[in-house]
Amino acid sequence: MTSDGIVVEPMDAAAALAAVEAFTLVYAEVFAEPPYDEDAADVAAAFERFPTQTRRPGFAAALARTGTGEPVGMAFGHALTPETAWWDELTVPVPEAMRREDGERTFALMEFAVREAWRGRGVAQRLHTALLAQVRAERVLLNVHQEAAPAMRAYRSWGYERVGEAKAWGVGDLHDVMILTLRPDGG
Rank of each mutant, 00 (worst) to 15 (best):
V135H: 12
G69E: 12
V135W: 14
E101G: 03
E38N: 05
S157H: 12
A15R: 15
P71E: 04
A62T: 05
V30I: 10
E21K: 01
F31H: 10
R99W: 08
R183W: 09
D88H: 14
V8P: 02
A13T: 08
T129K: 03
T129R: 13
A16I: 00
H175K: 06
E83A: 15
D102I: 10
H78D: 05
A28D: 06
G58N: 13
W118A: 07
A64T: 02
V72W: 03
G170P: 06
A79V: 08
R126A: 08
F76N: 09
T52R: 15
A41D: 10
T181Q: 11
A154R: 13
E70T: 07
A130K: 05
R153Y: 03
A13L: 07
R115P: 00
R99G: 03
V92K: 04
T84C: 14
D102N: 14
D185G: 14
D37S: 15
F47A: 01
R115S: 03
G172D: 05
T66V: 11
M74K: 02
R139T: 02
W158C: 05
V135D: 09
A108N: 09
T68F: 06
A22D: 08
L17K: 06
A137Y: 13
A113T: 06
Y155C: 06
A130M: 05
A45N: 02
M98P: 00
E38R: 08
R65W: 08
N143Y: 09
R105C: 03
V72I: 08
D12W: 04
M11H: 05
S157T: 07
A154P: 01
Q125D: 08
E165L: 14
P57H: 15
A45I: 01
Q53N: 13
L180F: 10
A79D: 11
A108I: 03
V30D: 04
S157N: 14
V123K: 05
L174C: 06
K167T: 10
K167G: 10
P93Y: 11
G5W: 14
E165C: 14
G186F: 10
E161V: 13
D4Q: 09
D102Q: 12
V163S: 01
E33G: 01
G67L: 12
V163N: 00
L174M: 06
R99H: 03
V144E: 07
E101S: 11
T24G: 00
V43T: 15
G164K: 01
A45T: 02
R55L: 14
L109T: 02
V72Q: 04
A32L: 10
A61R: 01
P71A: 07
A46C: 09
Y27S: 02
T181K: 11
R183Q: 11
R49I: 04
G67K: 09
